[in-house]
C-alpha cells in the first residue's frame, strides 16, 4: 500500500498538543456509569408466547375455513351440488352399460360372466315397481 508521505507531518509527529486533566478518564467513567438512566431491554432469547407461536397456524386454518365456507355458499346459491350429483349418477349408469356391452361384444367376458350379468339385469327389472296406470 502506498503510504502518504509529508515532510511537514513527519516533522510535527503525532502529538497534537491536546491534554486532559489528571485522572480525567477514571473520574469521567465512574460519573457516567453512576448516572446511566434505566432502560428497558428486550431479552433476545426470550421465548415467544403461546399466542405468538400458534398464531400462524390459526391464520392458516381460518383461511382454509373461509375458503370452504365461501365455496359452500357459492354452491348453495347456484344449486351446483344437486345438479352435480344427478350428472354423476347418469354418467355412472352410461359407463356401466357401455362397459358391459363392450366386454360382451369383444369376447373378453366368459359365458359365466355374461350369464351373471344377465341375471343381475333381470333381477333389477323384476324388482322395479311398475307405475300404476291411471283408470279411465
Amino acid at each position: 500500500m502506498k503510504t502518504e508521505k509529508s515532510q511537514i507531518l513527519d516533522k510535527l509527529g503525532k502529538d497534537s498538543g491536546f491534554k486532559v486533566p489528571e485522572g480525567f478518564f477514571e473520574q469521567f467513567n465512574q460519573q457516567l456509569i453512576d448516572s446511566l438512566p434505566d432502560v428497558q431491554i428486550t431479552d433476545v432469547d426470550e421465548k415467544p408466547s403461546m399466542w405468538v407461536r400458534v398464531r400462524p397456524y390459526l391464520y392458516m386454518a381460518a383461511t382454509f375455513a373461509g375458503i370452504w365456507a365461501m365455496m359452500n355458499v357459492f354452491n348453495h346459491f347456484n344449486g351446483t351440488t344437486d345438479q352435480t350429483m344427478r350428472m354423476n349418477e347418469i354418467a355412472a349408469g352410461i359407463s356401466q352399460d357401455n362397459n358391459a356391452d363392450e366386454l360382451i361384444m369383444s369376447g373378453v367376458a366368459s359365458d359365466y360372466d355374461i350369464l351373471t350379468y344377465e341375471d343381475s339385469v333381470n333381477n333389477d327389472i323384476a324388482n322395479e315397481v311398475e307405475p300404476e296406470l291411471p283408470n279411465n
Binding site: K11, L12, D15, S16, G17, F18, K19, V20
Partner: peptide, 13 residues
C-alpha cells in the same frame, strides 16, 4: 488550559 502545543502544532490544528 488543556493545550500545550507549540506554534507549529497550533498551525496544524
Amino acid at each position: 488550559e488543556w493545550f500545550d502545543g507549540d506554534q507549529a502544532q497550533v498551525l496544524l490544528q
